[in-house]
């Protein structure tokens, strides 16, 4: 955090978790009371609303727009904040859209939050997966007040392709980390010492593997984005980060292919799964009907084949 984001944390402001998921889950549990509101920009990562329900909190979704690059606008955030708002969950870069906030955009969100009584859970698990000249900014680094309010969640799963090791971490003010520690000590104990040893080497070791991975991802993103936007009826925001594309496929709704009627993103996903053997996740799972999530964390070969199949099938829809 110091090396990459100029953030200073003490050991008692950091907890290692069983995946970033446990970091977010326990952060919600540590802050949200029954009936408290948690603002979640939509499209959102599938687990957030369930985590909030498990804390008996209330998810308040803010629908972001494709034309805004699926980013939360400060004036819309301001309207959504009520006296019951306890937490804002920001997934930056975002799963499922890949959208990533610039420093300026985060500053304008911080301006709104400044005088409000809320925590920010900043899920930065895709931090390293940003492309080109885009510079990632951690929400905790905006200013010292925001650092006091931010529960920063990260992990080794995405950056180092170490999903199966289940190591995440949280950096936050001491009292929050203390609470997270208590909760974790009763729910799972520590993350495995073996996995922690592996994570140390990944974080401290040579980092060139990341830039190699990024170049490869960038190529795949360019390729697949070009391919799908060349299909009539599909529009797609080209995101700054993560490894997802989140195209708008709503122009196909109401149309049919043989016996298949496409009335929503679920139908669309089922159709391409059955007819073209392409697995994608319907936008409705992320609270964004009309869209579909493609992951390009797969080989270029697979992407090429997928593009061919997709075109072949979609042209038949009328």
């Amino acid at each position: 955090m110091k090396r990459d984001n100029h953030l200073d944390y003490h050991l008692n402001q950091i907890i290692v978790t069983n995946g970033a998921k446990q970091g977010v889950f326990n952060s919600v549990l540590a802050t949200v009371n029954e009936g408290d509101e948690v603002i979640i920009p939509s499209p959102y990562w599938v687990s957030y609303p369930d985590m909030v329900s498990m804390a008996n909190g209330k998810s308040v979704f803010i629908q972001t727009k494709e034309k805004d690059g699926f980013k939360l606008k400060p004036q819309i955030l301001e309207k959504a904040i009520t006296p019951k708002t306890k937490v804002l969950i920001l997934c930056n870069p975002s799963n499922p859209t890949g959208s990533t906030y610039t420093k300026k955009e985060l500053e304008s969100l911080a301006e709104v939050i400044k005088n409000k009584n809320l925590f920010i859970i900043s899920d930065e698990i895709y931090e390293k997966l940003v492309y080109g000249d885009f510079k990632f900014t951690s929400f905790a680094s905006i200013n010292s007040e925001m650092k006091q309010r931010t529960i920063l969640v990260n992990g080794v799963s995405k950056t180092y392709a170490m999903t199966g090791w289940r190591i995440g971490y949280v950096a936050a003010p001491e009292n929050i980390v203390d609470a997270l520690n208590k909760i974790q000590s009763h729910s799972t104990s520590n993350a495995s010492s073996i996995s922690q040893a592996a994570a140390i080497e990944a974080l401290a070791g040579p980092q060139y593997v990341i830039s190699e991975m990024l170049q490869e991802f960038k190529l795949r993103q360019e390729f697949f984005h070009n391919e799908i936007t060349s299909i009539k009826g599909i529009t797609c925001y080209k995101p700054e980060g993560a490894f997802f594309l989140f195209p708008n496929v709503s122009s196909y709704f109401g149309k049919t292919l043989g016996n298949h009627k496409i009335s929503d993103s679920f139908d669309f996903a089922m159709l391409i799964l059955q007819k073209a053997h392409i697995a994608a996740v319907p936008g409705s799972a992320f609270g964004a009907e009309g869209f579909i999530r493609f992951s390009y964390a797969t080989s270029m070969e697979n992407l090429k084949e997928a593009a061919i199949r997709l075109k072949r099938i979609l042209v038949k829809i009328s």
Binding site: L29, A30, T31, V32, N33, D36, A55, K86, N117, L118, F119, R149, N175, I176, D178, A179, N181, K182, I183, S185, H186, S189, N190
Partner: peptide
């Protein structure tokens, strides 16, 4: 900004603390 009631109601695992 305060922690949740649940966070306040539990204590750390004493054995892990030891």
């Amino acid at each position: 900004m305060s922690l949740s009631l649940i966070a306040k109601s539990i204590k750390a695992s004493p054995t892990l603390k030891l």
